[in-house]
């Protein structure tokens, strides 16, 4: 008789959650939920409201004739370069794709492309070298310079600095045909 009672209670314990355990789990779940809400809420309220740092609109760079073949023009406010390669125009974001240093154009250094004898980008941070196509010739940069889309409207060159395009190499489709 007593044996049966014990058996039943042990079965009950195994199958059913005791009220105490249930309440413990609920408390833990509530605490976890609270912590998660707090964490997510904090991150959400601290999440930056500004997109892109000031620049980010469409910028008129000038007339097509302002950029002869092989030339490189720097737009400080727009944070980009315009390069005229054989296929057409490219607009490079000035940030090194390695660690974000501003890549200065060096007109006097030996060229790494066949468009001109001199001129290339030398990153001062980890000495990555880029050519007029934005391609990497030395250093640790993992991909070519990022580009902005260019539209040419009646001879006027317009660069959309709101869209940063990452690329693996140079393709004809990246240029704006002149």
């Amino acid at each position: 008789m007593s044996q049966r009672v014990v058996d039943q209670s042990s079965i009950l314990h195994r199958r059913q959650l005791s009220r105490r355990d249930f309440l413990t789990y609920m408390w833990l779940a509530a605490a976890g939920l609270l912590a998660a809400e707090g964490g997510i809420g904090t991150v959400a309220s601290l999440w930056p409201r500004v997109q892109a740092g000031g620049f980010g609109g469409k910028i008129r760079a000038g007339d097509v004739d302002d950029f002869p073949l092989g030339s490189l023009t720097y737009f400080k406010e727009g944070r980009f370069y315009i390069s005229h390669v054989e296929a057409g125009l490219l607009a490079f974001y000035r940030k090194c794709t390695h660690l974000g240093c501003v890549v200065p154009w060096r007109p006097d250094e030996r060229s790494e492309d066949n468009l001109a004898p001199q001129g290339r980008f030398n990153c001062p941070c980890h000495s990555s070298i880029f050519d007029r196509y934005g391609l990497v010739h030395a250093g640790p940069a993992p991909r070519p310079l990022d580009i902005f889309p260019i539209t040419i409207d009646g001879g006027l060159v317009i660069v959309d600095t709101g869209t940063i395009i990452q690329r693996a190499g140079f393709k004809e489709s990246q240029v704006a045909k002149v």
């Binding site: 991150v43 601290l46 999440w47 930056p48 500004v50 997109q51 892109a52 740092g53 000031g54 974000g100």
Partner: peptide, 9 residues
């Protein structure tokens, strides 16, 4: 999130 923007500012 760390910078609060795309660049240091």
């Amino acid at each position: 999130f760390l910078l609060g923007a795309k660049e240091v500012g």
